[in-house]
Amino acid sequence: MRQRILGRVRQALRDRPPVPHPGALDTAAPDAPPPVEHFADCFRAAGGEVHRFADADAARRWLRAFAARFDSVSHGTGVPRVLAVPAPEGPPREAALGVSVARAAAAQSGSLVLSSRDGRRTQLLPPVHVVLVDSGTVAGTLGEALAACRDDGGAALALHSGPSKSADIGQVMVTGVHGPGRVIAILLDDWPAP
């Protein structure tokens, strides 16, 4: 079947003049704000929450206070030990809170880039998702962010750009349909050394 389909494609293209690739398109806006601020604006516009901290100590204080409300937490495999949330660890399908690490982020589209190496169930099953982001990995455009993650090595990458939502029921917006209803990006300007 492979040869038949390829043969049919070649037959179809026999008299079709080939058209060259137009090259890469730069989507950067000349007047865009600095990437970290721009990311925060776009991520919030889609319903996400953003907190920015100077270093791991400040972030840890916030995480400790925030996590007090949750019975159980599921950590992604890439979460630095110093940023782990002090709550009982549970399997992703039972945990009330998921904590992941972003591989990168894109300001223009307000997207977090997540890797399957960090654990997909942790990114999807708990109703609240906290994503730790190294401010240095926030790119201006989605193209730059994806270029940086091309050789991630895992089976899959994903973009999460806000809480799960749907307008399929009578065109009324509902959040938290299948994925987390709350997603919180924690930006760290000084990422802890491993």
Binding site: S109, S111, A158
Partner: peptide, 9 residues
Amino acid sequence: QPVGNYVSM
């Protein structure tokens, strides 16, 4: 939307 809420690659 600027991008789909979720993109799986």
